[in-house]
């Protein structure tokens, strides 16, 4: 007891919490996922370094799926609307999420981005994350699949240097493979070996947005995932 005013002393009270620090984001991601499932839209979280070719892959995807599948996209961008403008020009209704200094998208930003995008009327929603191989891997957005674009010019040891990003990937798109004849020092087998040591079930498709190589396999992979996701949702209803 305090002798001056008679107030009580403080007790040290320990509380066991054992909760994910990002539980608020996880709740938001679950909410987004419910929306995507209800609308039967496959949400794809597309990640990769700045300049790895994420936007170019989506432009090639729009060309390959024109008239066959309805697409929409949102692009996380630090400061510009350039990516969303490129995707609009490619025929994909798009919205830019300008993150300012934030290095990643989170579930709340994606949810806000959904409000003025006609995503419900589409088959595939691409969420082009901020160009960064670290932070985006930490935040669940509610996506059905994680895809990482890794360009052949980035160096063979990228998977080993950024294991968190590649661990969460369902698919790696090895981009810009049209440049390989000019890159004798790049050993594709070494890149794939790095992926086998960071991805438990490695799936890799070689693509070139310029020549169109591999785009059919990528589009086939998306279609497979879309069918699986739809049948899983149907089984739950």
């Amino acid at each position: 007891m305090c002798e001056t005013c008679g107030c009580g002393d403080s007790d040290l009270v320990p509380v066991e919490v054992h909760e994910a620090i990002l539980s608020e984001n996880e709740r938001g991601a679950r909410h987004n996922r419910e929306h995507f499932n209800e609308a039967r839209v496959l949400a794809v979280n597309l990640m990769g370094s700045p300049g790895s070719g994420k936007t170019a892959v989506l432009e090639a995807t729009a060309r390959a799926l024109a008239g066959k599948r309805r697409l929409s996209a949102m692009s996380g961008d630090l400061a510009t609307d350039n990516d969303a403008n490129r995707l609009e020009a490619a025929g994909i209704p798009s919205r830019s999420i300008t993150t300012g200094s934030a290095c990643h998208l989170d579930a709340k930003l994606v949810h806000e981005g959904l409000h003025d995008l006609p995503w419900r009327e589409t088959d595939l929603l691409f969420i082009e994350n901020v160009g960064n191989l670290v932070c985006p891997a930490v935040y669940d957005l509610g996506q059905a699949v994680n895809v990482v674009a890794l360009s052949v010019t980035e160096g063979e040891d990228k998977p080993l240097k950024y294991p968190v990003m590649f661990r969460t990937a369902d698919l790696v798109l090895l981009t810009k493979v049209d440049l390989l004849p000019h890159l004798p020092q790049i050993d594709v087998a070494a890149i794939e070996d790095g992926l086998a040591r960071t991805m438990p079930d490695p799936a890799v498709i070689h693509v070139s947005a310029i020549t169109g190589e591999g785009i059919d396999r990528w589009v086939g992979w998306l279609e497979e995932k879309r069918v699986v996701a739809r049948s899983e949702v149907a089984a739950r209803v």
């Binding site: 403080s10 040290l12 009270v13 919490v17 909760e19 994910a20 620090i21 990002l22």
Partner: peptide, 16 residues
């Protein structure tokens, strides 16, 4: 090895 977890909080609660 993928934990981002709040395990425990010790707080000072006034003794009333």
């Amino acid at each position: 090895g993928d934990e981002i977890l709040l395990e425990r909080v010790e707080m000072e609660v006034p003794d009333v």
